[in-house]
Design a protein around this nucleic acid. Sequence first.
DNA 1: CGTTAGCTTGATTTTCATCAATACTCGTGG
DNA 2: CCACGAGTATTGATGAAAATCAAGCTAACG
Lengths: 246, 246
Amino acid sequence: MGKGARTGMNCDRTRASGANGYCFDCVVHTRAFCAALDSAALAKLETLQSVVELQSEETMFMEGDRAVSFFTVLTGALRISKLLPDGRRQITGFVLPGEFVGLSAEETYVDHAEALTDASVCRFAMSDLRRIGAEYPEMGGQLLAMTNTILTRAREHMLLLGRMKAPEKLASFLVGLLNRAEATEQPTDPLALPVSRADIADYLGLTIETVSRTFTQLRSDAIIALPERNLVRVVDGEALAQLAEG
Amino acid sequence: MGKGARTGMNCDRTRASGANGYCFDCVVHTRAFCAALDSAALAKLETLQSVVELQSEETMFMEGDRAVSFFTVLTGALRISKLLPDGRRQITGFVLPGEFVGLSAEETYVDHAEALTDASVCRFAMSDLRRIGAEYPEMGGQLLAMTNTILTRAREHMLLLGRMKAPEKLASFLVGLLNRAEATEQPTDPLALPVSRADIADYLGLTIETVSRTFTQLRSDAIIALPERNLVRVVDGEALAQLAEG
DNA sequence: CGTTAGCTTGATTTTCATCAATACTCGTGG
DNA sequence: CCACGAGTATTGATGAAAATCAAGCTAACG
């Protein structure tokens, strides 16, 4: 198993910390797991962290790798996926700035994490994280809350995968993008599609062709317009939301 | 919304604690979230807990209810599900003795929890739990680890829902049951199917009919036998495992 | 017994996957 | 600047899987 280029393998040979300045003025400082920490704790964290730069499509870790590192996304986005032996892929989630990956209860990672775009992540050794966590319980609380949020999203996604039809799935995906763009104050009118059709397909449990056909179906139903390949214009938001609800 | 009988509504009017003896000799004491606590903490927990008895199919909480309680299953099993407005249902997981439910990051529950069988659960007020958690950080660690385990299972299930075919889904389900029965030292040769076809269908993202047909298909392929409606005999474990892997 | 709920089986339809071209986009080099 | 090619997306034709519609069957329970 494992075919992808893995230039960032385990991310252990990495440019030293501080690329992004210090923890205090970190871009995700207010929403990451470390947000709950006081400046003494942050100062300690800072000595343990290192920033890793990833290129688009670069593999960060693979299922089966020893789970030695824990990562918070600073910029860009990651893709978490699982594979069947014959190559069928399910994307189980995307990881955006401020969110983390790599916190497995197991000894090894249970899924793959790859850069969806060029990205930078903040890395900790799992052992350091545990040590800090023991010292600052509020950090554990934050990790627990964030993990619960991920779990809630996962369960919503299970409903989508198991019970929705293709147009409902795609509408849900678009509504999700829309909400996210609003939350981060990015343009929503021509809404950017930051992922390939293949990724959308593997996220929604469909094939590329069905995704494509469903896009054109939504377009001919005058629910969306597609001014460019990776730009969507929501024409009938009401209808889109309706579809997305099932 | 919400049509189901809800006799145990929010479980607040409940027989007082101690039905099962004390925390120290609780049936799930060694594997529940409280396993990490010392006896001082346990003594405190004990004053806050209450045991709730549920009948089969009784609703414990519903999506939208205020998330005031947290539950650990003592005996029996629960079913966690989500619904689409038109009634389509996805079961997102089962909760077995020692496991918990109700730890939402939100103000309200985001899914439904019902008793799959007659069950007893140990209830805490969320506020009490948070208070204790602040005092005993090791409890937070245990909750985090258990939540991560649930998340890992959820992601595996996403792969199943999005990418597996009916026979693979059913085989995975049976292998899961088998492992669980082994782990809890319950009979595996005539393996008990503790759930209805409808529940299996809603767990696997299929219809009842497809589940039924797939059972008979596995039977005619001599992979399993069905001596009784709710008993399975694994004839060709190798083939079953193969299917389950995808 | 007769009724009912849960399960199985059969016939048909729908949805989506698969297979196969064809188009579009972008970058490279002639 | 245009031609070419690779990668990505769309579209079309066909097939397979699963859903739906519709009977029957079986076992448990009054």
